[in-house]
């Protein structure tokens, strides 16, 4: 083979090697782990649980003399015992109305403000009225298959009711 032809083949080999290296680098960087949503993942994993815990522990303005927690309002609403009548804010308001009002406000000021879709509802032994009043969501068709779900069981006179919060991903 003539020396010129050999040189040309060498040139081609170098070009092929360079292209292969380029492709390897491109693959290495394009397949590297995407960490942009790392913080969101960590925070979201705790969000539903801490939000539900904080909600049920909150003292409402329902009765200023004998402070009533939101958990107690949920319990009274679920069993429809009508044992609680809120006098401090809107006189004569039932536990269901007050619980719905406060829950809506809390979810609006947190998840809604942070641009998160959610679905809050009550299940288990809760009355139908409670299930309707406490079905609060800012999505029309639910979360689909991707959501962070946390539940809290509450004992009532009619059995255990489950408070459930789904935060869509």
């Amino acid at each position: 083979m003539a020396p010129k032809a050999q040189m040309e083949i060498m040139g081609l080999v170098i070009v092929v090697i360079l292209i292969a290296l380029g492709v390897l680098f491109a693959l290495r960087f394009s397949l590297s782990e995407d960490t942009s949503g790392l913080r969101e993942e960590v925070v979201e994993s705790e969000l539903a649980g801490s939000l539900l815990n904080a909600m049920v522990s909150t003292t409402t303005e329902c009765n200023t003399i004998n402070p009533i927690t939101l958990a107690e309002l949920y319990q009274d609403c679920s069993s429809l015992s009508n044992g609680i009548r809120c006098e401090s804010t809107t006189p004569g308001r039932t536990a269901c109305e007050e619980a719905q009002n406060i829950t809506q406000l809390m979810l609006n000021e947190t998840l809604e403000k942070w641009g998160k879709k959610y679905h809050f509802h009550i299940s288990g032994s809760a009355s139908e009225d409670a299930k309707i009043a406490l079905n609060i969501s800012n999505t029309i068709d639910g979360c689909g298959r991707l959501y962070e779900r946390k539940s809290i069981p509450l004992p009532t006179r009619v059995g255990t009711v489950i408070l459930q919060l789904d935060i869509c991903k």
């Binding site: 913080r39 904080a54 947190t110």
Partner: peptide, 9 residues
């Protein structure tokens, strides 16, 4: 800044 929010009592 990177803000992080936690619901609390």
């Amino acid at each position: 800044k990177i803000p992080t929010f936690y619901p609390i009592v």
